[in-house]
Structures are given as C-alpha cells and as structure tokens.
Design a protein around this nucleic acid. Structure first.
Lengths: 231, 231
DNA sequence: TGGGTGATGAGAGCACCGCTCTCGTTTTCC
DNA sequence: GGAAAACGAGAGCGGTGCTCTCATCACCCA
C-alpha cells in the first residue's frame, strides 16, 4: 500500500469518478454528461468534484483515455488470439473494433464521432492510448510485407511521399508508399463502416444481419490490402 | 404575395430562425446550439421562439433538413456539371461531398457525426432530403451497369439478399447484388474518409495535402466499384 | 508531540440553459 | 363588430458549469 492514506483515498475517488462517468457517458452520451450528476452519485456536492477534475472537459479527457485503453485492450486480445496469417490478424482486429463499438456506442462516439464543440482532447494525454489500434494495424501490414505475404503495392500519390515517410519513421515501418496508402484508406473505410452501423446512418436501408454486412466489408478490404485473393 | 400578412410574417420569422440557427450551428456546434441565443439575436424574448419551434430538437430538425438540402443541391450541381462517364460522375459526387463537409464541418457533424444524445431526427421530415446523395450515387451505378460500363460484379453475402432486394425495389434499380454490395461499401468508405478528415481523426499523422489524399481514395474507390481500371 | 500547512468537502452564489405558464395586445375570420 | 386565434413579454422552475469562502481534517516537520 504505497503512499499516504490520503493519497490512496484520492486515487480511489478519482477511480470512482471515472467509473461513474463511464456509466453516465454510456447512458446519456458525451454532450449530456453532467459533472453535477456524477457528484450526486458520488454522494458529494458538485464543487467537491472540482478538487479532482479541473472542469468538464478534463473529465471527458479522462473518459477518452479510459475508452481508448479499453478498446486497445480488446483489440490486442483479439489479435493475440488470432492465427499468424496477416489476413486473420487483420480480420480479428476489424471484428474486435466493431464488437467494441457496438457494445459501447456512446464511447465509440466520444472517440470517433463528431468532436464535442469547443473541446479538443489534449494530445499529450490521449495519443499514447489513441494510436494503439492503428499502430497494431500498421505493424500487421508491415510484418506481412516483410514476410512477402502482401501483394505488390498499388500506386501512391507522389505529393504525399513526405507524409508517408513521416508515418514510416514514426511507426518504424519498412513498407512502401503504396502499402501505407492502402492501409490509410482501409483504416478510414473500416471506421466509416463501423460508424455507419453504430450511428444508424444507413438510412432507410436496414440490414437484417449487420454483422454479415460488416464481415463482407472486411473481406473486401483484405483483398484490397493485398492480404487475400479475390473470392 | 400569397397568404395573410401574418402568415407571411410567420414564414419570414421561421426563415430568420433557420438562418440564425444555421450560423450559430456553424460557430458553436450542435450540442452547444442555444435556443435562447437564437432568440436574443432575433431580438425577441426566448419564450417567443417557442411559437415557431416546438423545442430545441425541433430546431435541430429544421437545421438537419436545411443542411441535407444544401448538401444535396451542391452534389446535384457538381454531378450535373460533370461529364457523362460514370467514373467522372462518381468522382464529382465524392469531391462535392468532401468540399461541402470541409466548408461546413459543424453541419457535416450534425448530419454524419455522432448522433446528438436523446435526439433522433424524425424520419418523416428528414429522409426526403437525406437520401438524395445516396440515391444519386445508386443511380450513377445503375446507369453505368445498364450501359455496360461497370465490370462484372463481385460476390455478395447471400444472407443479405433480401436486404439488397429491398434497396433495389426502393430505388428502382436493376443492378445485381454484387454491385449493390460494392456501392454500399464505397458509400461508407467515402463518408469515413470525409469524416476522418473533417474530424481530424488521422491522429498524429498529418497530411500536407488532404485533398490529394482524398482524391487518391476516390480513385481507388472507382477501381473497386469497377468504374475504372487499376492505375 | 504539537503546531503550521495544505487538502478536502459543504454551501452559497453567478450566469446560463430548456421549457412552461400567464397576461395583455394584435390580427384574423365569421 | 365581436369571438377566436396568434403573438410577444415577463416571471418562474429546475437544471447546468463553475467560482468563492469557510470550516474541518490529515499530514509533515520542527
């Protein structure tokens, strides 16, 4: 039991705030998340919460990091349990992302939906957890490339070569531009598909089996990434 | 000048409310949109606004329809000005969507971002405008199919055949399941790419020329749709 | 061991929000 | 011309984020 009792109590209270905030977030969404409601449930007057959290945005940041961490853990576990083939690892990653998003729509919205107006998550506190999934995805592609399991890369816009090089440096990758370009596109396509389903944006077109629709999208993305042959 | 003076004044006031709300929405976002602030700018006490708008959600619905209409008009104009080839029409549609989203990020977020908690846009008032872009996209693909300009369709998950048939019926299409499946996927990928850019969700990876990145995505989508040959 | 110090929580209060109700006034319609 | 409907102002309710003050309590060090 490290630290003084007061320090431990402080951490306990911060954990309680995060836990209550997480539940409220899941129930009412980010925009309606109320610091006073959290205080009420904590059994404390609202001003007391400000001893632990600078303001409402700070609480949101806490929950953003919390959500990124949980999503990252879920994806790590799923990919770790998948087979060694790149296509299997990619499929496991995509399905884990979707499963978490469907299970936690409000938290998915907090991470990948429209930004809360006037609130920008401070990069220095969120990026560490926020880049876990894309980093894992990039390394799945990088491993596949070095193993010769990914088909020849497609073209990449030459004007973005410097940006691709920055990505390669930052993530210690060895894949060529074409693979990075394909990965970036698959990345946004994957998250678009998940958000479309979670946010109910397919409009009047309802799909009886959204999981089958998603799996089909993942199959096509695997082909486009050069990880699998066309069916 | 049809209608009584009072009726015309009412429509004028409703237009003013929409116009002011549109500006506030662009400036502070949907979650922070305040009916009282609109009333202040209108030069009227807050309760007076309730003579024209049932509640805050009703004002949001007004702005949703307004945004869908403007987006639909912009896309229609762009596609109308494009050449007859399907790939050109699709490219024009995609670029027009992105251009509008970049120009109007808050309104894009209102339409395609995370739903405002507790608010679901009433379908009977929004779908008419909301389905314009996807309808146009579907008909571009349908025209291309009937003209023989789209390559053989890929596979489609058989479990979704009924859903594809419903879409075909609703939009009066003649394309096979594979083309519908590809269109749906391109649709969500397109909106994922736009949202990633507008919401700044590429993370640490910044792109110096986001338009070039988007154009490359559109080129790849055109290939995947069978509208163009691989570069 | 005891006192100074800093952390803590309660409470009051400010400005804002959505929304409701009442009450004169004005316009419309029969 | 009078009844009815529409309208805008105003007061008010309960909620929000956030600040400030004040009493209390635990901690640390002389």
């Amino acid at each position: 039991m490290p630290g003084t009792p007061r320090q431990r109590a402080r951490e306990q209270t911060l954990d309680d705030i995060t836990r209550i905030g997480r539940r409220h977030l899941a129930e009412v969404g980010a925009a309606a998340l109320s610091l006073r409601a959290v205080a009420r449930e904590l059994g404390v007057v609202s001003s007391a919460v400000y001893r632990y959290v600078a303001n409402r945005d700070d609480l949101l940041t806490l929950l953003v990091v919390d959500a990124y961490t949980e999503l990252g853990d879920a994806v790590d576990a799923a990919v770790g349990a998948a087979g060694p083939a790149a296509v299997d690892r990619f499929t496991a990653l995509a399905r884990a992302v979707r499963a978490w998003a469907v299970r936690e729509p409000s938290r998915w919205a907090l991470l990948y939906g429209s930004p809360v107006p006037g609130y920008a998550a401070p990069a220095e506190r969120t990026t560490a957890q926020g880049i876990r999934v894309i980093t894992l995805f990039a390394h799945i592609m990088d491993d596949a490339w070095r193993a010769g399991d990914v088909d020849g890369a497609g073209a990449a816009p030459p004007g973005l070569a410097a940006d691709y090089q920055a990505i390669r440096d930052q993530l210690s990758l060895s894949v060529p531009d074409g693979v990075i370009a394909a990965t970036v596109q698959a990345w946004s396509a994957l998250f678009g598909a998940v958000s479309f389903e979670v946010f109910g944006q397919y409009g009047a077109a309802t799909f009886g089996d959204p999981e089958a629709l998603f799996d089909h999208t993942v199959e096509r993305l695997a082909v486009q990434l050069g990880l699998a042959a066309a069916a």
